[in-house]
Amino acid sequence: MVQHRLPMLPSAGEVPWIASVNGTEKKLNIENNAILLDVLRDQAGSLGTKRGCDMGTCGCCSVLIDGEPRLSCLTLAVEADGCKITTVEGLADGHHLHPIQEMFAECGGSQCGFCTPGFLVVASSLLENNPSPNDEEIKSAIEGNLCRCTGYQQIVDSIRAASEILISEETIEDSTSPKSDPHPGFTGE
């Protein structure tokens, strides 16, 4: 028996595409049937946006489109033409991490880290709109994201801790600040 497969749906050609990705204007030529996730990963250089399932079930590919969390694997790139797109790479301010990033690293919200970009993007949008969410609100916000490592508990803890930092307006230390000095107390005199 010989096996036959259907051909892929052809693209109708390339179209110009302009969008602001993490604050930088990207002018690209994309296939008009391209999926946003593919454009972000393959053309716009956002490898932080992860591909988990291609069908909107895992939430790993979440990005913010004009501030709203969206599944980039279910979004045609042309739909985001002219929009402001924020991926996980756009959350930090230079070497100052966003509190949500700092807390995911600190409170165990990230184990293998593959689902983390999706959770971070969704959680940052939650905290933007609701700086002090209760646990139920946190759970509702991340219900579309799957995590296989943490069992979610430490993710909820991380978001709660980030919310506390945001409210208290604590500053996050620049990650390039000096680390431990191997020669404490010695001044070279």
Binding site: Q101, E102, A105, E106
Partner: peptide, 21 residues
């Protein structure tokens, strides 16, 4: 103790299999 590679993961800079280009 937070993971020593945690900051790589939360910034999207951790390279998984498909991120090797």
């Amino acid at each position: 103790t937070s993971l020593v590679d945690g900051k790589w993961k939360v910034t999207g800079q951790a390279q998984y299999g498909d991120d090797i280009r």
